[in-house]
Simulated scan of single mutants.
Amino acid sequence: MSDFIAAEDRPILERHGLANFDALWALQLEAVDEPNTERGGWSSVYRLELDGAAYYLKRQSNHLTRTLRHPFGEPTFACEFRNIRRYADLGIPALQAAFFAERKLPGEQRAVLLTRALDGWQDLEHWLQGWASLSTSRREAILAACGGLVRRLHDAGQVHGCFYPKHIFLREQGDDFAAQLIDLEKTRPLLFGERDRVRDLEPLLRRAAVWNEAEVRQLLVAYLGDSADVERWHERLGARRRRKGAR
């Protein structure tokens, strides 16, 4: 995969001498959290601000995922970058990449992924923490935004694979909310129809435990486009949630 630089971000990166892998790899920044070392290598995230534009710079070394196509492993950021581009091509709202590149060294695979910061957006977890204090209209708008986002994803033939409240970002727009997704590493094609849809959607409902039954149905109406099949979906999702909770 060749190096990628988004056209709209190239000028600012070039002004700061950061339009290449080596410069972004060597840049001295403070990590925003502890490095991820689960896959035998490491992966870290940093915040980068340039002339009023904010980014998140992700760097990793030997932090690999193994698939049939890449049995010896490839950087997890390579997979995430492909999915970022796929979402953009399919019109699914999601985070945007400014730069991506990877390098193979003796005994080491490195990758850099620069994404635009979602300043002005809040993840769904934030809204769930204050759910009881929200007005009915704001709750309904959030449910509609989340349901509509999942519908766009599944209608485009994709499964997110990690549908948690921390991966849905929301921003108020008048009386409505816009919604988009992050953490696209586990995205795959939707191959098994309703079964895939249920498996993708259920983790969101399990983690949004503050939603009552009526609110879950509101989300399903937004997801399905009408109320005709809501009860069957509600039962099927509830059955899966009970099975998962009993484990």
Rank of each mutant, 00 (worst) to 15 (best):
R66Y: 05
R66C: 14
R66A: 14
R66L: 15
R66S: 10
T67H: 06
L68N: 05
R69N: 09
R69T: 09
R69F: 13
R69I: 11
H70S: 10
H70P: 07
H70L: 10
H70M: 11
P71A: 10
P71G: 06
P71S: 08
P71E: 04
F72A: 13
F72W: 13
F72I: 11
F72Q: 10
F72N: 10
G73I: 06
G73V: 11
G73C: 09
G73T: 03
G73D: 10
G73K: 03
E74H: 06
E74K: 07
E74M: 14
E74Y: 03
E74N: 09
P75D: 14
P75F: 09
P75C: 15
P75M: 14
T76D: 12
T76H: 05
T76M: 15
T76G: 14
F77K: 00
F77I: 01
F77L: 15
A78I: 09
A78D: 13
A78Q: 11
C79F: 13
C79I: 15
C79N: 12
C79R: 15
C79S: 15
C79G: 11
E80S: 02
E80M: 09
F81S: 02
R82D: 13
R82G: 06
R82Y: 12
R82V: 07
R82K: 13
N83F: 02
N83E: 10
N83A: 12
N83S: 05
I84K: 01
R85F: 00
R85L: 15
R85S: 11
R85C: 13
R85A: 13
R85I: 06
R86Y: 08
R86K: 14
Y87T: 01
Y87R: 02
Y87E: 02
Y87H: 12
Y87N: 06
A88L: 01
A88N: 04
D89L: 10
D89W: 07
D89K: 09
D89E: 13
D89Q: 11
D89S: 12
D89M: 07
D89H: 07
L90P: 05
L90N: 00
L90R: 02
L90M: 04
G91C: 07
G91Q: 04
I92H: 03
I92F: 05
I92G: 04
I92V: 14
I92W: 06
P93W: 07
P93H: 07
P93G: 06
A94P: 02
A94T: 02
A94D: 10
A94S: 15
A94Q: 03
A94K: 03
L95S: 07
L95Q: 10
L95H: 03
Q96R: 14
Q96T: 09
Q96G: 04
A97W: 00
A97K: 01
A97G: 00
A97P: 01
A97C: 05
A97N: 01
A97L: 11
A97I: 04
A97T: 03
A97S: 13
A97Y: 08
A98S: 15
A98N: 06
A98G: 09
A98Q: 08
F99Y: 11
F99C: 01
F99M: 08
F99D: 02
F100G: 00
F100S: 00
F100V: 01
F100M: 04
A101W: 06
A101R: 05
A101G: 03
A101T: 04
A101Q: 10
A101C: 08
E102K: 14
E102Y: 05
E102G: 12
E102T: 05
E102W: 09
E102Q: 15
R103S: 12
R103D: 08
R103L: 13
R103V: 13
K104F: 11
K104V: 14
